[in-house]
Design a protein around this nucleic acid. Structure first.
Length: 573
DNA sequence: GCCGTTTTCGGCCCGACTGTTTTCAGTCG
């Protein structure tokens, strides 16, 4: 089975942890962490690239040595250097370092002085009050580690973007109640519209006498005040989400917003550019020597290093800086570009509303079209439509379309892709539809080869249009099924099919890296909400966020087209 | 370990806060 990028990244990141405990050259450790991130977020599989004879050392931060190590992992499944280091230093220390407040130096001290090599060892040492006796440790550090262990046990997954929004909105409103608060914005991965966020970074500018810090730690949902200072405080909310609040002066607001929006990799790369121009960028501004030359707005920050504004969603150091310097940044798709939704359900299957209600909701959003894509018969739990019921729905759609003004309901179905790659409804009924949205809903555990063949075979059906939620993953809940997406995307482009970017915040499937790959190979995507109710149609903005992270322009997106243009694209030859 | 209009060595982002210290190390972002 091919080694995927995540496995490769995992090995390098463990290696980095262990070497750090051993006190290795920190820059070497950083190089291993960098390669882990680069590989993990790359839009194409390393194994695939090698198979195509591509030179991995052309990727940023990957030189001859690391390219060789990646090849070792792909060829053998193992990284010999990691095995070697694991002989000397217990590999479990890498897990232990996920405890908050436990970094490499303390880990090393605990391992050497108390022979701590597992979570159980550490708990025992804490209970016996041995940890506080070590040089550089104390009772408070011991207690902090103890709390860290408890939280680890509670397995704090990253928070889905939609939940982070539900938490952020009332908190922002509360903070705005503080006198003297001027600008306020959530930065970090939230602003970059990442599918999940680790914490919230809130930035404010405020009058000197403002009480915003006090108000922040008094917020009703605060469970624990982790730290509190004049310019920065950190709390943990009852939901488990950590929130940082930073107060910055107005002259530095742009610099701070830029700095705390990240990503870290992006910031580091831009700061290197600044160094070449003898400038220093930090959260307080852009400095030439001791003189602040810019910092009030983000535009000033970019301008100072000779770059145009880079939208937050692109700031991942995945090529956006080079693109910006060449004037080749993509013109990212926006919510306003969307003219319709191509995947929605009604109460004929597992939706909550009827045709007319869904149509009114789509009209309210200003859409030109809405595809009704109820499940096909195989999805029996959703009371999937058989030929007879689908034909009845088609008749109902014709009738309703006659009455509707400005909106066309498209006849569609979410057709199951059966295990052998055939479609769940006969061609005779599929051909009466305007489009099909085809999906895998069972047998997720086929081998990669068989799953890929299943989908490719389905695409051979001339009525196949869009592959819905192409990997089947549910964020934090269900891993994607094994599938060779590169092959599927190439095949789709070759045969006039499309892939869906499912906008539902639990799915966001395709992910950002694969959206970018689609953009690179010229495969168009449909951004669809998979709405099961009228209000679900508003989830489109999460899909837009993901699409922007994947460099998609309006032209890359099927449903930015007028109805006529869309119909042309859906016609397969 | 990577990188290079500083090109094969010598850099590699930097500041806030905490706790354990008595001037600073460790961690985090």
């Amino acid at each position: 089975m091919p080694v995927n990028n995540r496995d490769i990244a995992e090995q390098f990141s463990r290696l980095a942890d262990l070497l750090e405990v051993e006190g290795a050259n920190p820059f070497r450790v950083r190089a291993y962490r960098n390669v882990a991130r680069t590989v993990d977020s790359h839009s194409r599989g390393m194994a695939d690239m090698l198979a195509q004879g591509e030179d991995l050392s052309r990727l940023p931060g990957i030189g001859r040595d690391l390219a060789g190590k990646i090849r070792q992992i792909i060829d053998t499944g193992h990284l010999p250097l990691l095995d070697e280091v694991a002989q000397r230093t217990p590999p479990a220390l890498s897990e232990l370092m996920r405890i908050e407040g436990l970094g490499p130096r303390r880990m090393k001290a605990l391992y050497e002085a108390l022979d701590i090599r597992s979570l159980a060892d550490l708990k025992q040492a804490i209970d016996a009050q041995q940890v506080r006796e070590l040089a550089g440790f104390g009772a408070k550090t011991e207690a902090k580690l103890s709390r860290g262990i408890e939280r680890l046990a509670g397995n704090v997954a990253r928070t889905k973007l939609i939940h982070a929004e539900q938490i952020a909105i009332p908190l922002i409103a509360w903070l705005k109640g503080s006198k003297g608060v001027k600008a306020i914005e959530v930065a970090g991965s939230f602003r970059r519209r990442q599918e999940t966020v680790g914490d919230l970074d809130i930035l404010v500018t405020a009058r000197r006498d403002a009480d915003v810090m006090e108000r922040f730690v008094r917020y009703d949902e605060v469970d624990e005040v982790v730290s509190q200072g004049k310019t920065r405080s950190t709390v943990r909310l009852r939901s488990g989400l950590q929130v940082d609040l930073r107060v910055v002066p107005e002259v530095a607001y742009g610099a701070a917003l830029y700095y705390f929006t990240g990503s870290k990799d992006h910031n580091v790369a831009v700061r290197k550019l600044a160094q070449k121009k003898n400038l220093k960028i930090n959260e307080y501004g852009i400095f030439k020597g001791d003189e602040r030359v810019a910092g009030r707005t983000e535009n000033e920050v970019f301008g100072s290093v000779g770059l145009p504004f880079i939208p937050p969603e692109l700031r991942e150091n995945r090529g956006e800086i080079e693109a910006a310097s060449k004037g080749k940044l993509p013109e990212l798709v926006e919510l306003d570009d969307i003219r319709g939704d191509l995947h929605a359900h009604t109460h004929a299957t597992d939706g909550h509303h009827g045709l007319e209600q869904m149509a009114r909701a789509a009209q309210a959003l200003g859409y030109e079209y809405l595809a009704i894509s109820d499940h096909s018969r195989h999805v029996s739990v959703a009371h999937g439509l058989d030929r007879k019921r689908l034909e009845a729905q088609i008749a109902a759609l014709d009738h309703l379309n006659d009455k509707l003004d400005g909106l066309v309901l498209l006849k569609s179905a979410e057709v199951d892709i059966l295990e052998d790659g055939s479609l769940d409804l006969p061609d005779a009924v599929l051909k009466q539809l305007d489009l099909t949205v085809c999906a895998v809903h069972y047998k997720f555990d086929l081998s990669r080869t068989r799953q890929t063949e299943r989908i490719l075979r389905a695409m051979d059906n001339p009525y196949f249009n869009i592959l819905a939620h192409p990997t089947g993953r549910l964020i934090n809940e269900r891993a994607r099924y094994e599938i060779d997406l590169e092959q599927v995307m190439q095949a789709a482009r070759g045969s006039g099919c499309f892939l869906e970017l499912n906008a539902h915040p639990e799915r966001l499937d395709l992910d950002d890296a694969h959206c970018k790959r689609a953009h690179e190979i010229g495969l168009k995507l449909a951004i669809s909400t998979d709405a099961h109710s009228t209000s679900d149609l508003e989830l489109m903005r999460y899909g837009i966020g993901q699409a922007r992270r994947g460099w998609l322009q309006a032209d890359d997106v099927l449903n930015t087209r007028s109805l006529n243009a869309l119909k042309k694209l859906l016609r397969r030859n």
